[in-house]
């Protein structure tokens, strides 16, 4: 953690100097006032203002640090790669036991992702979307769900009866809605309450 102390005539002036030196904006740091400072009378008894500036860790630093510490309990030997684009933090976990890290239907991956997102955004003003993947699981799952959607859509058209899928998470439901949007003859909707919300595919 980077810490900087500054003295100036006023608190505001000290903050400005510190931010100039760090080349940072006010919301990237936390400021602690050590001495308020006093202009005094005709220059007598004047006291300098003194502040301490602490650079806040960036969201991706918080995310990676937390995830590394967490994954260590499941798999000792993992590599973590990450990239940040427009407030979306993509994290890729690479390890020997990727199967355990992914879990059934990606449940462990989802849990790691959810907890990391909570910790990352706990104290921050801007929301950073955290996406965690291992062994390209997300893309493979997307393809699987798209195939499932097509298969069920054909069945609905053949039998002319609606079919209700098993409960899914919002991101998985979104993949199916999107896949079937361009397919003529069928329509999709979601029914029920989270976490048991499920998709109904029907003629339309």
């Amino acid at each position: 953690m980077k810490i900087l102390e500054k003295q100036a005539k006023t608190v505001d002036e000290a903050i400005k100097q510190a931010l100039d030196e760090l080349k940072m904006s006010r919301d990237e740091v936390e400021v602690e006032i050590l001495e308020e400072g006093n202009r005094g009378i005709f220059g007598f008894l004047s006291k300098m203002a003194k502040i301490k500036v602490v650079v806040k860790p960036r969201p991706e630093e918080i995310a990676i640090k937390f995830l590394k510490g967490l994954v260590k309990f499941i798999d000792n030997d993992v590599k973590i790669h990450s990239s940040l684009n427009n407030g979306v933090l993509n994290i890729e976990i690479e390890g020997e036991n990727a199967g355990i890290l992914i879990g059934k239907h990606g449940s462990t991956l989802d849990a790691l992702q959810y907890l990391t997102s909570l910790v990352t955004n706990r104290n921050s003003k801007d929301f950073t979307r955290v996406l965690i993947d291992a062994e390209n699981y997300r893309e493979k799952r997307e393809k699987t769900l798209e195939r499932l959607a097509m298969r069920i859509a054909n069945k609905v058209k053949e039998t002319k009866r609606s079919i209700t899928l098993e409960p899914m998470y919002p991101n998985e439901r979104r993949i199916i809605h999107t896949a079937l949007q361009q397919i003529p003859g069928v329509k999709t909707k979601s029914i029920g309450e989270e976490p048991y919300r499920r998709i109904v595919i029907s003629l339309g």
């Binding site: 967490l70 355990i100 849990a111």
Partner: peptide, 19 residues
């Protein structure tokens, strides 16, 4: 909400325990 965080904690612990 609806025990979502508790569920995520349990899932991760289960994965670590499975090992």
């Amino acid at each position: 909400k609806q025990g979502r965080i508790a569920k995520a904690i349990r899932t991760v612990v289960k994965a670590a325990a499975a090992k």
